[in-house]
């Protein structure tokens, strides 16, 4: 066991060498809970000087590791001392950290969906057939299917993007309203579907629902 005085900043905060700023923050808060002046847990354990020393080192550790520039310099110092073999220092990117780990994935999916939607919108405005359909006062399920086919979008893709089950998408396209639990649900499904195809959700929904009385 190393005495706290001999520990490097990473050991002091009990974090790995590649700890993210978020982890550093948490570790510092946790350690501070142990050592701060009125901490009940360490009451009477340290002399005043001892406590002040530890707190000063803790502050030092935090302010060094949380600052990318200082952290880089400190890592270089540790590498020179041979503390951590093969460690090349924290490749400190300044990106804000996501609170929930793994949030990276949904975010990229969201971005792809947005990108696809933009592309579809331009395709919609440049396709004469779709523009022709959109001039109709009433829109049928078959019309929506034709638009989808024209855009080359599969049902699976719609399902993936809207999280609406395939049977409901098919029910909309086949005009089988009875398979959808309620009118309200049908409306919101329609809107989501239309938005996916780069169409104006409200227009599609009103024109589609015109035919259905309750």
């Amino acid at each position: 066991m190393k005495k706290p005085e001999d520990q490097n900043f990473y050991e002091l905060l009990e974090i790995p060498f590649d700890a993210s700023p978020f982890e550093i923050n948490c570790a510092y808060k946790e350690m501070y809970q142990l050592y701060h002046d009125s901490s009940l847990a360490s009451y009477s354990f340290f002399s005043n000087e001892g406590r002040a020393k530890i707190l000063a080192k803790l502050d030092d550790a935090y302010s060094t590791l949380i600052d990318p520039k200082k952290r880089y310099q400190y890592d270089q110092l540790l590498i020179e001392r041979g503390i951590h073999e093969g460690w090349t220092g924290y490749n400190g990117d300044n990106k804000p950290l996501h609170l929930i780990s793994g949030s990276e994935r949904p975010r990229t999916i969201q971005n792809t969906i947005l990108k696809i939607r933009e592309e579809l919108k331009t395709m919609v405005s440049s396709s004469p057939m779709i523009q022709e359909i959109l001039t109709h006062d009433i829109i049928f399920g078959s019309d929506i299917k034709r638009i989808r086919d024209e855009l080359g979008v599969s049902i699976e893709m719609i399902v993936e993007m809207t999280k609406i089950r395939a049977i409901f998408i098919r029910a909309i396209e086949d005009d089988q309203f009875e398979r959808i639990p309620s009118r309200l649900l049908l409306k919101s499904f329609l809107k989501a579907y239309a938005q996916c195809l780069g169409l104006d959700p409200d227009t599609v929904a009103t024109r589609y629902l015109k035919r259905i009385k309750d």
């Binding site: 706290p4 809970q33 142990l34 009940l40 847990a41 360490s42 354990f45």
Partner: peptide
């Protein structure tokens, strides 16, 4: 009371008394 006090006491003892 802070329910974590016990864990914290143990941590201090392990860190400083081994």
């Amino acid at each position: 009371d802070n329910p974590k006090i016990g864990v914290m006491i143990c941590k201090i003892i392990e860190k400083h008394l081994g």
